[in-house]
Simulated scan of single mutants.
Amino acid sequence: MAKVTYRKLDEHSLRFWGLLVLHALVIAAGLGAAWYMEHNGHVVTGMSNGIVWGLPHVFAVFLIVTASGALNVASISSVFNRLAYKPFARLSGVLAIAFLIGGLAVLVLDLGRPDRLIVAMTTYNFRSIFAWNIYLYIGFLVVVVVYLFTMMDRVMQRRHGYIRAAGWLAFVWRLALTTGTGSIFGFLMAREGYDAAIMAPLFIAASFLYGLAFTVLVLATMSSETQRQLLSDEMASNFRGLLIIFALVLGYFTAVMHLANLYMPNRQGVEAFILRDGGIYTALFWFGHVLTGLVLPVLVLLLPASVLSRRLGMTVASVLALAGGVAFIYVTIIGGQAYPLNLFPGMEVSSSFSDGEVLNYFPSLPEFLLAISGISIAMLATGIALKLLPFLPADGAAN
């Protein structure tokens, strides 16, 4: 393969600046919402003593999972030696860092007392998956920065062993990070909607799909801004195939998890809640996660080029997959908390504290503003990075 050259985002339309300003305004609104909730307390949110992880946590986990998957392209290039993906490896690393920063920012601001993060970072209970995740998140940032350095430094470029070693380290670390994120729920034995070891591979599969979907959307946006087609027909076909595979794998793990739960007598109640009787959670599962996030993207990608162009089809499928991804995380986090705790197995429980009852949750406007600000943080960071440093492939690099 010919030597790949990279460029900064020097040529772009006024729309680029407009998008950056829009993201900055959303971030400002999110910071204001965080201050409002911190100042007034959780009473101004839709959360309660039963549902303590709200919409901001949904988006934070979604972005953290996406960050791991955003490294897909770089891993395929360095670890699996598929040189056709090399022109997009730098962008892949930038997106991974940007999405993790966006997710962690929302997570920290949603704690209610962000200053207490110092305690979490200095006092560790290694029997808690949360303590391990602090190392995984910070370590991922460091590893990806080193990975980008090996790809961009001229000396390192001449020594491919360093790039490959950094690529392997980043690949293993990203799997550990997503395993840790999924295990937050898989290790929670008190919640019947969680407490499943398959949560780890389920989240890994989800990260592959959502990370690649965001990469496709960013490449489509940059192609529009630079008036250059960054994806060749061959690479567009490769990305299309990967999106189909990742969607099918995520669907497979979703089916396995729910079929296994249906097989277990003590899980049939929560499965009936999610799959049939859960109201908004059932609707989000079937119409959001399954239909919008899995079935429709595959159908769109399988359409012949005469009906829908390959690139437009990938863009539409990526948007659908990401929308389904938010629904999937929402059902997992909020639905898992809404289902009543089984305090006394085999007994009916009722009290003035709503024991044994399905909990209601409706996100407030401040929660929504803080949640979407995480995406704007990631996109603003990406836009600034592409403007300042050569992360995009130059003309002909992708052809």
Rank of each mutant, 00 (worst) to 15 (best):
N399D: 02
F126N: 07
A34C: 00
T181E: 11
R154M: 13
I27H: 00
L359E: 11
L243A: 01
I198M: 07
F368V: 12
A131K: 04
G182E: 02
L389R: 05
S232Q: 08
W286M: 01
L243M: 11
L202M: 07
T215M: 15
T123R: 13
F246E: 10
G102K: 02
A205L: 03
G54D: 12
L100K: 04
L250I: 07
L20Q: 13
A220F: 14
I27C: 02
P340A: 03
I204R: 06
V145P: 00
L31A: 06
P114Y: 01
A200L: 02
D10M: 07
I134Y: 01
A105E: 05
I245M: 07
K86L: 09
T123C: 05
F62D: 14
V106P: 09
T45K: 11
F273A: 06
V79E: 00
E192A: 07
G383S: 10
L230S: 03
P297G: 05
V108L: 12
T5M: 09
G112Y: 07
A98H: 01
I384Y: 09
L243H: 02
A381L: 15
G335A: 03
M264W: 07
Y339V: 13
L388T: 13
A247K: 08
P366I: 09
L389T: 06
N266E: 12
A220T: 02
T282E: 09
G211C: 06
S13K: 04
W35A: 10
L275W: 00
